[in-house]
Every structure is written in C-alpha cells, then in structure tokens.
C-alpha cells in the first residue's frame, strides 16, 4: 500500500547492479499493483540475494527497509509458498525464495482459470432473477474469464519447463 511516507529505500548493502535490478522489480509492482516501494524492494531482493536464506533483521539492514515491510511480505508470500519461512530460536525468522514455487504458482493459476470461469457461471445462475445492476459484475467476469479459460491453459500445452537451472 502506498503511504505519504512511501519512498525508495536506501539499500546500503547492495551493489549498483543489484540495486538497479531490485528497483526495476519494485517499479513493476508499483505499476501493476501500486505496491509500496519497500515491499517491491524486498521481493526483488529475495529473487537475487546471497545467501538465498536471509533473516528479517538482515533484510532490514541490507535494504534499509522497515521491519513492517518485511513482515508484510512474509504475510503475503509465505502462504502461497513463494517464500519459505524458518523460525530462529531467538524469536527471529528467516525467509528464502523457493526456486520452483513461483513459476509453478503462475502456471497453476493460469490452469485454474477454467474452474474460475465455472464459478462465475454458477454466479450468473444464482443471480438469474436479480436486477441488472447487481448482475453486471459477475456478467463481465464470466465473459472475460470464459475467453481466458479457453486460451491460457493452451499456452502451457506449448511449454516445456526447464528441468533444472544448472543443466
């Protein structure tokens, strides 16, 4: 969420090249989701940090972001499995980006579009006798997801996942 204090963090622990990349990721999420700079910087850094696993404290120091920003990303990306969280004995936690969950999640959500479309069809039945104003939201989604549900799963018929990055 953008706030009046929303600014790019200082990234004291990053090289120029790393900052350039992380900044581009943050710009992307700002553009598509109006995501706060700090949140985008955490996501970008989790994609390229070394070592892969970082404590919340380390993330704050390296990026110059607030603890709340790290906690927010923890809440956002641990449940879908994109980030893995490990508890440390001192009450601290670490985050690490899994190498294959993000690509799988993208694929999974696109393959799930036909089933989302069926949910919208069901919604139209439930609202069969409702006034037009009430039905419009679901009607628009039903139309849009009907098309995507037919097209996007086919995109993966033509896709060969990489067996491993190192091969």
């Amino acid at each position: 969420m953008t706030t009046p204090h929303d600014e790019k963090p200082s990234t004291p622990g990053l090289t120029e090249g790393e900052r350039d990349y992380v900044n581009r990721v943050a710009e992307h999420y700002r553009d598509t989701d109006k995501m706060a700079w700090e949140h985008g910087f955490v996501i970008g850094w989790m994609m390229i940090c070394d070592p892969v696993e970082q404590s919340a404290h380390q993330l704050c120091e390296t990026l110059g972001v607030s603890r709340e920003a790290v906690d927010h990303i923890d809440k956002l990306l641990v449940p879908p499995g994109v980030l893995t969280r490990n508890e440390l004995p001192d009450g601290e936690y670490t985050l690490a980006m899994s190498v294959d969950v993000w690509p799988k999640t993208v694929q999974h959500s696109m393959l799930a579009l036909p089933s989302f479309h069926s949910v919208m069809e069901h919604g139209l039945k439930v609202l069969a006798d409702a006034p037009e104003e009430r039905r419009r939201r679901v009607a628009n989604m039903e139309r849009f997801f009907r098309y995507l549900g037919e097209e996007l799963p086919a995109v993966f018929d033509r896709y060969e996942p990489s067996p491993s990055a190192t091969s």
Binding site: I48, D50, V99, D100, W102, Y159, P161, T166
Partner: peptide
C-alpha cells in the same frame, strides 16, 4: 548457480 537458479527458472517461464 545456486544464486542464479531462482531467476533462471522464472526467466525460462516468462520467455515463453
């Protein structure tokens, strides 16, 4: 390779 792998896999998908 360990550090690059997250990006390599995502880039492979997104290039498609």
């Amino acid at each position: 390779a360990e550090r690059r792998e997250r990006l390599v896999r995502l880039e492979h998908l997104y290039s498609h």
